[in-house]
Amino acid sequence: MNKFLLAVHVLAAIVAVGPVTVAASMFPPSVRKALAEPGDAQVLSTVRVLHGICRVYATVGVAVPVFGFATAKNMGVLGDTWLIVSIALTTLAAVVLAALVLPRQTALMEGIGNIGTIGNSGAGEAARRATGRLAMSTGLFNLLWATVTVLMIVRPGSTTGA
């Protein structure tokens, strides 16, 4: 049972978290491109698709900690320090995604219809600054997940010799 739960946990992380990290990272440069090329339907479509990927896969990503907890419980490692740190970092990553990344993407998406009219105006500059803040939040989210991944592989104090 441990192998099954661990396999589902790892697959969920790859299938759910991977697309969010990639799509979220691609979102700010795509918005900047949309600002630089107003009226380009392909660029606007790309931005919308990236936002959709982030929303959908963030929801699917809930399976990662669910199966992670089940795996940890079956393996008897719920009290291990490396796991507690991983849980805290995962929670922080979820908060960053839910409170910063997705709302900032949504705000930019709501204004995307105005991209063609804002051009180089003050609103255009504000949108460019917003993409910078979004990129920073996305980088933090990605860094947190990378750290959790390393902890899951290295597992300090593990008896597996890793």
Rank of each mutant, 00 (worst) to 15 (best):
A63S: 12
V66L: 10
L50R: 01
I53K: 05
G79H: 12
T59K: 15
G76C: 08
V56P: 01
K73M: 14
S86M: 07
H51L: 05
L89G: 08
I87T: 02
A88P: 03
Y57P: 06
R55E: 15
A88R: 08
F67K: 00
M75K: 15
V66M: 09
V62W: 08
T59S: 15
G76I: 09
A63G: 07
V77R: 02
L83V: 06
L92H: 04
A72G: 09
L50N: 01
A88N: 05
L78W: 08
V62T: 13
I87V: 13
L83S: 03
V77D: 02
V60I: 09
V62E: 07
L92F: 09
I84W: 07
V60M: 04
V49F: 13
I87D: 00
T91R: 04
V66F: 06
G68H: 03
T90S: 10
A94T: 13
T90W: 01
G79C: 09
L50G: 00
V77Y: 01
N74M: 10
I53T: 09
I53D: 02
A72L: 07
G61F: 02
M75S: 15
G79I: 07
V60G: 00
L92A: 10
G61T: 00
G68V: 00
H51V: 06
D80V: 09
V62H: 04
G76R: 11
L50E: 03
A70N: 02
A72V: 01
R55Y: 10
V64C: 02
W82M: 05
A93M: 02
N74L: 14
T81R: 15
G76F: 12
C54S: 08
T71Y: 11
R55N: 12
L78V: 14
M75T: 14
M75C: 14
R55W: 11
L92E: 06
A88F: 11
M75P: 05
L78T: 13
A70T: 04
G52S: 12
W82I: 09
P65D: 12
A93T: 05
L50D: 00
T81S: 15
A58I: 02
G61Y: 04
Y57L: 08
T59E: 13
A72W: 02
I84C: 12
V77L: 06
T71I: 10
T71F: 12
A94K: 08
A72C: 09
D80C: 07
V85Q: 00
V60Y: 01
A63C: 13
F67V: 01
G68M: 04
S86K: 06
G68S: 03
A88G: 09
K73I: 15
V49L: 14
V49Y: 12
V85K: 11
A93L: 06
G68Y: 02
I53S: 02
N74F: 11
A72H: 06
K73F: 15
P65S: 10
F67N: 00
W82F: 14
D80T: 13
T59I: 14
P65L: 00
T59P: 03
I53E: 03
L92V: 11
D80E: 15
L83K: 01
